[in-house]
């Protein structure tokens, strides 16, 4: 290439493009959430709230005052956390075996994981609904936690296995030689080394559970278990005949906040997890 100034400009432009790409729609939904509901009804085209159509925090207050929405947040947090926890525990066991042990059926597990990662989720909705209503799991937390676990396991197993392969396991023995008990060796040496991988897998699993929509709308019918994405799609304002676009936007921003916080805090770990867990040459 040689032409370094040109190249620099190109990269700077590219970087600006990436930032616009990623942040513009987010800025838009935030801007929309500040349009007043009245101005939405009357039509308020444009990126920013029109003059006199600025709602302040009204939409956020109204969204938060919505009992169903608060329940949905509670459901989503609870269900996603439990699913994440269980999924990571089960995946850790499996990933350890895959990374460290030779056993028959390893290929079967990896193939199953691959198959499930590609599985068309909607095709399960019918039979699962039928099963859940028969065994009483319909519209309950476990009714969502179980499918979330199954569908996050492949990603969790891959991410963890990739991390575990990089752990210098011989250090465990070295510690034992130095007089540590095997539990101490495991706790002091292996756990700190494995922890980042487990943590990364947990974040990715949580994202999946938080994002799910198909199970969320088909396997629930009340706020007993309905998670945020489903709740947003059924969002009801004070005026039932008017879909409250700006109120919905406020709800959407609230639902996105946890994700943004996690991304800001753990950017490095997520990138490492995504790239190691999903593609290896």
């Amino acid at each position: 290439m040689g032409n370094t100034p040109l190249r620099k400009v190109g990269i700077a432009l590219g970087a600006a493009l990436i930032l616009i790409w990623c942040l513009l729609p987010v800025a838009w939904i935030i801007s929309l959430s500040f349009k007043s509901q009245e101005s939405i009804t009357n039509g308020s085209p444009g990126f920013f709230p029109s003059e006199g159509g600025f709602a302040g925090w009204d939409n956020y207050v109204a969204a938060w005052d919505n009992e169903q929405f608060r329940r949905a947040i509670f459901n989503s947090i609870g269900i996603s956390l439990i699913a994440t926890l269980l999924s990571v525990i089960v995946a850790t066991l499996a990933a350890y075996a895959i990374a460290r042990l030779e056993f028959r059926g390893k290929k079967l597990v990896l193939s199953t994981a691959l198959a499930i990662a590609m599985f068309p989720v909607v095709s399960l909705v019918g039979p699962l609904f039928d099963m859940w209503r028969a065994i009483g799991l319909y519209d309950t937390w476990p009714g969502l936690i179980i499918p979330y676990m199954s569908f996050t396991l492949p990603l969790a197993i891959w991410t963890l296995a990739a991390f575990f392969r990089e752990i210098p396991w011989e250090m465990e023995q070295a510690a034992q030689v130095d007089g540590a008990t095997s539990w101490q060796a495991f706790r002091k040496v292996i756990v700190p080394l494995a922890a980042p991988g487990v943590f990364t897998a947990a974040i990715l699993t949580f994202f999946f559970a938080w994002n799910d929509f198909v199970f969320g709308i088909s396997l629930t019918s009340t706020e007993a278990a309905r998670p945020i994405p489903a709740s947003l799609s059924f969002f009801v304002g004070s005026d039932p005949f008017n879909r409250p676009a700006s109120l919905l936007a406020a709800g959407a921003v609230i639902a996105t906040l946890p994700i943004i916080v996690i991304v800001l805090a753990f950017q490095r770990k997520i990138v490492a997890g995504l790239t190691s867990g999903a593609v290896k040459g």
Partner: peptide, 13 residues
């Protein structure tokens, strides 16, 4: 960090 935001945003949103 910003490239992770669309990834994390709920599809419904």
């Amino acid at each position: 960090t910003s490239i992770l935001i669309p990834y994390g945003v709920i599809t419904v949103v």
